[in-house]
Amino acid sequence: MPPGIPPFHTSPPRMEVMDIMSLFGVQAKRASRGWKWKELALGIAFISPAIIGFLAFTIYPVIMSFYYSFTDYNILQSPLWIGLENYQDLIKDDAVFRKAIYNTLYMVLIGLPIHLTFDFLMALLLNTRIRGRSLYRTIFYMPSITPIVATAILWLWIYNPQYGLANSVLKALGLPTIGWIADPFWSKPSLIFMGMWYGGNTILIYLASLQDVPNELLEAAELDGANAIQRTWHVTLPMMSPVIFYTMIMYMISYFQYFTEAWVMTAQRSGAAGGPLNSLMFYTMYLYQNAFQFFKMGYASAMAWILFLIVLAATVLLFKTSGWVYYRSE
């Protein structure tokens, strides 16, 4: 801020403004009210792209999607109202749907905690007085900017049961080899492991937040006789809890929408996808297939709404149980 300009609230506005206001019979005292209307119009003008975007790309599609979910709709003919049939079929008769829910929940309930715990521990290690921290940061961050399709193809090669790097390492160590993504049991853990590789950017988020933990608190705890684990549990973790909570929400939503990696790794030329015994058929993959391969738009819309409700419920649940999140009052 250039010197010599007094803050607005300590000095009255310039005379010109007051003169103009008085032309319209506005008293100095009421000026603030007049300004608010002007500011409302200005604010709306600035956010107008968001308003249009919100109406056109959010509200309208959400309403239409809700409507389509009660119809039989193949795009070519107009939608035919069939009530709750899509939902009933999905829940009662669709084995692939159930499998897709199971696989997706697997990623959310097992993959997500592993991923975030690992990233947190790595951040703790990097937060010691280690030298070359910026080099490590670069190394852990690099995979996360690689395009997902290229990453998935690279890991498809690494996980190749016969010639892949993963099995070569196991063999070199004298361990039994496994089928990785070709094996229904190991396929999802394989994806979780791969996800940790290109999800290393979370390490940096945690590291940045670790560096914000006040040293006085840690020193005070140490003086009181708390050991490293106690300090981490009782000081560091609570101080970082808002960031951890934020990453939990964001990653949960994105794990529920898991698609590209599994699609690239399992999709065949024929359009079939899902891997061995559908063990990599994730929710969005099946939704995509229904919509754009089978042209069951109504059915796919019902799936989208079920996903939405699940994500919403999970988010509400996380917020309801967020008593452990500690917000510093500053």
Binding site: E39, T58, P61, S65, Y68, I253, A291, A304, F308, L312
Partner: peptide, 30 residues
């Protein structure tokens, strides 16, 4: 710009982040 209702509108706008892309995908395609 300090306009009335700004922060509520902003929170509503942010909450659309939680809307899965899949929900809007089909109607937008159409």
């Amino acid at each position: 710009i300090r306009w009335p209702g700004r922060d509520i509108v902003f929170i509503a706008y942010l909450s659309t982040l939680m809307l899965p892309f899949q929900v809007t995908m089909i109607p937008l395609y159409i």
